[in-house]
Design a binder for these strands. Sequence first.
DNA 1: TGACCGGTTGACTGACCAGTCAATCTGTCC
DNA 2: GGACAGATTGACTGGTCAGTCAACCGGTCA
Lengths: 205, 205
Amino acid sequence: MARTNAEPAVDKRRMILDAAVRVFARTGFHTCRVSDIADEAGVAYGLVYHYFDSKDQILDTLFLERWDILLRAIQEVDGEEIPAREKLYAITSFIVDSYRHDPDLMKVIIVEVTRAANTFGRTHLSHIRQAYVGIAAIVERAQRAGTFRADITPDFAALAFYGAVEQVLTGWIFALLPTGDREYDQAKTHIVETICGGLDRVERS
Amino acid sequence: MARTNAEPAVDKRRMILDAAVRVFARTGFHTCRVSDIADEAGVAYGLVYHYFDSKDQILDTLFLERWDILLRAIQEVDGEEIPAREKLYAITSFIVDSYRHDPDLMKVIIVEVTRAANTFGRTHLSHIRQAYVGIAAIVERAQRAGTFRADITPDFAALAFYGAVEQVLTGWIFALLPTGDREYDQAKTHIVETICGGLDRVERS
DNA sequence: TGACCGGTTGACTGACCAGTCAATCTGTCC
DNA sequence: GGACAGATTGACTGGTCAGTCAACCGGTCA
């Protein structure tokens, strides 16, 4: 047992994961080589395979770590006693702030997993679906309470909502929309306004 | 000049493209081999390279063929003298019917290009963007006419709208939503209702 | 001291596959 | 017929890279 302290001074496994985020974000998962990750982490090639079984497993790890946090956030929000619109705002806020805090990681998760339906998206479909299910539950409850209209199925509303959020993130990732703190906060409101209030102009009492 | 008629009896180029759609839809662009396409088309390996410069070019061709039709449809719809909501309905309808008519092709375009932001999505970003621009133009005009609220930017509304449509298509592609003629037609209404009318329950006069 | 062990190294291998190319076929035209 | 051209064939090559492995390092413990 070589571990006197709880952990070695530098956690190489974490360094590899962090380096992978940067490399995946820069070059893309399929385009980059494992050696790129090792180089970026300042670590020997073989060490990557000491900590991970495969290149895929690195991405899996990154995705699952973060997605589970999102799922818990959705659960938690749903438990609170606030209007559905505020719940959706809280979820949007969580996702947008995740992007603000670590754009590379969110880019990788969205581009390489969530939107990569043929490769990792398929593998993690059940996890991704959990998010939709959580959102749909919020919508359904609001419909029963009479806050949301009942003629649009919760499943459908969940997809539309999540689709709008993801597309906006993608807009930032690929510079189709301006980025910045002001824009991020505006986006939160706008997304929820669009999905809940609608684009139609309405006389509000 | 060996062409007495306008074209050979069987257009091998077309056969290769059609085979590619099936193979890409089944196996995914990156996973499949060029020989799979040749086999599916019932054609020798080398012939693929007689008609196309590369594997990439096959996907490019499929995407551009179809996307240009979509862009024209958006242009055309925008030219008509109908309310913005009906314009958005017409666009949604066009996309949904494209999926109904050729799910494999739409799956390939969405999964391998539109949503594959790191590979082909990046290559065709300017084309994809054209669709957003067209939709944003519709929104902007409606805002000026006072039909749509003006506090949400057209760019933003376009992304949210397109995001919702694409997410629903993705839901069908990966069996997260039930498919069928009834569902397709309902979806058209629901998407437009969600984006224009919003999820909030409103007393309508 | 020396045995031990997890962490670390990087050269190497084996598989895979996009793209090439020389040969062959098929039809046309003079 | 025979010359020419485009269509068609499929074996082969070259380069790439994920994953392996045998050796090495540095700290611990008896």
